[in-house]
Amino acid sequence: MDPASDTLVPKIVVKNFSAFYGSVQALHNVDFAICERKITAMIGPSGCGKSTFLRSLNRMNDFVPGFRVEGSVTLDGQELYAPSVNPVLIRQRVGMVFQKPNPFQMSIFENVAYGLRIQGVKSRSVLSDIVEKSLRAAALWDEVKDRLNGGAFSLSGGQQQRLCIARALAVEPEVILLDEPASALDPISTARIEELMQDLKDRYTIAIVTHNMQQAARVSDRTAFFLDGTLVEVNETTKIFTNPEDSRTEDYITGRFG
């Protein structure tokens, strides 16, 4: 482990954070920090609130009727849920890749260029450069460089998911949230996505929700264990998987429940 990985710079700081769907409380007083240039994994059984938590970090829950939060989430010290903050601007800085590959019904090129176009980039050469760079970063360039104008749905599921990653990278976010990005993919595509995350770690802050504990152990630097809407434990991944402090964490990672 290189020395730099021991210095933790908090990027997103969550304090006393609770989330509600109507009258149902999904998260209870979570205190947590996602650190810069690290991969933070969130694990826990279904319904434990880990996805709700992830989606709260770029205000994707705003679309859920009746959703509200208490407490504080800050990105580089800026309060995400302050009334003066426009969620659109937050999402330009905190990108997201979803469980199911969700390319747009457009060409491969236009999928990656979409985020740039809506931010006003018009120059074809600038677009081409960034599209190529993003597709290379997502390890997809060699497979699609000859058919950039082909439809995105002609790609395989794994390729589509890497396209979605390229699309998210193109707008140069600071943080990338991955919501079970490999759960719909075969093992080979999963391995490619995991490799990709290691490559991206140098430049981006990454948070990943996963059901797959081996995946969390393989890819992440830090792991957070959620249970019933509370954050049970967060620590170095090696620590969580070898010597967890909380007995519930141990029960979960050893497969005694969940």
Partner: peptide, 19 residues
């Protein structure tokens, strides 16, 4: 999922609907 992808890329509502 498609709509969410658009929002997650920083689209406004109008951009999501029209583009």
């Amino acid at each position: 999922e498609t709509v969410e992808a658009a929002y997650a890329l920083g689209s406004t509502k109008a951009e999501t609907v029209f583009f």
